[in-house]
Write a protein that binds this DNA or RNA. Sequence first.
DNA 1: CTGCCATTTTACCGGC
DNA 2: GCCGGTAAAATGGCAG
Lengths: 87, 87, 87, 87
Amino acid sequence: MSDEQNNSQIGGIAAEALRQFIERIERLEEEKKALAADIKDVYSQAKSQGFDTKIMRKIVSLRRLEDQEREETEQLLDLYKAALGMA
Amino acid sequence: MSDEQNNSQIGGIAAEALRQFIERIERLEEEKKALAADIKDVYSQAKSQGFDTKIMRKIVSLRRLEDQEREETEQLLDLYKAALGMA
Amino acid sequence: MSDEQNNSQIGGIAAEALRQFIERIERLEEEKKALAADIKDVYSQAKSQGFDTKIMRKIVSLRRLEDQEREETEQLLDLYKAALGMA
Amino acid sequence: MSDEQNNSQIGGIAAEALRQFIERIERLEEEKKALAADIKDVYSQAKSQGFDTKIMRKIVSLRRLEDQEREETEQLLDLYKAALGMA
DNA sequence: CTGCCATTTTACCGGC
DNA sequence: GCCGGTAAAATGGCAG
């Protein structure tokens, strides 16, 4: 009996479903990890061209924060509009 | 003059290069964020089917650790080989 | 009035309690720093006796990983037990 | 044959020396880890008494920085003295 | 002095 | 909605 089939013997069909969820998650995490490596590469390239990566990181995080604020502001505006029947 | 072109007036050509690095990083981070959301979704689906996400997370982290250990072992072997002139 | 007593004048009794927490933390960090120096020394000694510290560090980190894995496995078992009402 | 003696069969007496270095390091790291846990505990206690641990951490790091500066200043003074024959 | 690794800080997620 | 614990980002320290 193969390993794959073995799994489903333990908890019935549920074990197989679990295994598939786990595998999907692991695949997604692999991709996420790859992207993290890509980002690291970009910083390395920038560094090799004389840019200060610490400052770059600050810029990126600042812009991320600004985006957040903008979104929150918009959501707040939507809320106000809805409250005033301007939806 | 457009805003985009404005940037490159500050520090010469370097500013434009910097802008491109930042944008590449931000695009990659967007993708990473999307993957994180996907992973979260998978956990949600699993939960809605009655699986214990806490256990699932432990399983995932345990398997990740096993991978790491395997990698470290290989790296250690490589170091041994290099140290013994078997490169 | 002494400096030590001055502190407690600022925010009432809380300031004194805070001061004591901070001092305890600083003492503990001192000890931690000393241990880090000790570890560094051991590596230095080993190196002076011809050992490859890079390999040594890999060994140490590998064993640390193994410990972690063992702990995670136990935690996973505990979770299983709890989930099955075997707590 | 015991495990301990086995080790020394691989690379002669060196293997035993290596083993002892590794063990010393691991013991020291254990202690370091324990101290880290102690520090975490102190922060927890402080938190449970209503203190803001984030601010406390800032205080601790600021004081650490001040200590560093003071030491560096003293070292600089010593250097000047030595240069002026005031050692 | 540069890259790498450990530590530390920050953010996130789930549970209560 | 907070709080505790877990993963990611950022910083600092060390060896080469």
